[in-house]
């Protein structure tokens, strides 16, 4: 191949692939609006707050960012909105060991950010992040589950709480929660309205559950020693 032929291959080949890329870009732009809910003023304000505090300097979102703090794509599915708002405004007031500093978000900014993150969670991401393969099987080990254990799973308690290393770290660890001297009655009361027994709790109330379910769950919790 002569130098001139190699040069022409480079120029026209690159142009060819760039034109295809442009075509695909146009098509993608046309599809994007249909792959997520409509953007309200609040969501837009939330995105501005996301940028103002340089959140991406620690977190990832849609998997892109700094890998220093949790991914925010599905965070609203794992944490209740009330918890998120309280955490955003004062992380260590909610979770003393949190690595996140207090950035001075206003109540309005926190609301907007939660709206933005809720919008993000509804994007069609082609199934990302995938559901963990092993989580469903962990902790059962062939034994039939008690009713309390089942409720613990159904209610998604492990999104925030951790038992034997499985689960989140937003709420207190429950591996030995039964050893703290609280009885079934206390736990039922706490589950129905956490702030009635722990004044500054960020946990949402589970008042909608039936009394039987609450008792079964509380009975399970006191066995954890």
């Amino acid at each position: 191949m002569s130098n001139k032929a190699a040069r022409n291959l480079f120029i026209f080949g690159s142009l060819f692939f760039f034109v295809i890329f442009l075509g695909l870009t146009v098509d993608t732009m046309n599809q994007i609006d249909g792959r997520a809910p409509e953007i309200t003023k609040e969501i837009d304000a939330g995105k501005m707050a996301w940028q103002k505090y340089d959140c991406i300097g620690c977190h990832t979102i849609l998997g892109n960012g700094s890998y220093f703090a949790p991914d925010m794509t599905k965070v609203v599915e794992r944490k209740p909105a009330g918890y998120l708002k309280q955490f955003l405004m004062d992380p260590r007031g909610v979770k003393p060991k949190a690595a996140m500093p207090k950035l001075g978000l206003t109540s309005q900014e926190a609301n907007d950010l939660v709206a933005f993150l809720t919008w993000i969670s509804k994007i069609d991401t082609n199934g990302w992040p995938p559901k963990p393969i092993l989580a469903a099987a962990a902790g059962v080990a062939g034994k039939p589950q008690s009713r309390g254990q089942q409720i613990y799973q159904e209610q998604g308690c492990s999104a925030c709480h951790n038992i034997n290393g499985i689960g989140g770290t937003s709420g207190p660890e429950l591996t030995r929660v039964g050893a703290n001297g609280k009885d079934v009655e206390w736990h039922v009361k706490h589950l129905k309205d956490p702030r009635s027994v722990v004044p500054d709790s960020a946990m949402p109330p589970y008042a909608g559950m039936s009394d039987d379910d609450l008792k079964s769950l509380a009975a399970y919790l006191v066995t954890l020693k």
Binding site: P70, P129, P132, I133, L134, A135, I166, G168, T169
Partner: peptide
């Protein structure tokens, strides 16, 4: 990602 443990943990 596979076991489903918490990021912070």
């Amino acid at each position: 990602r596979l076991m489903g443990l918490d990021y912070v943990a």
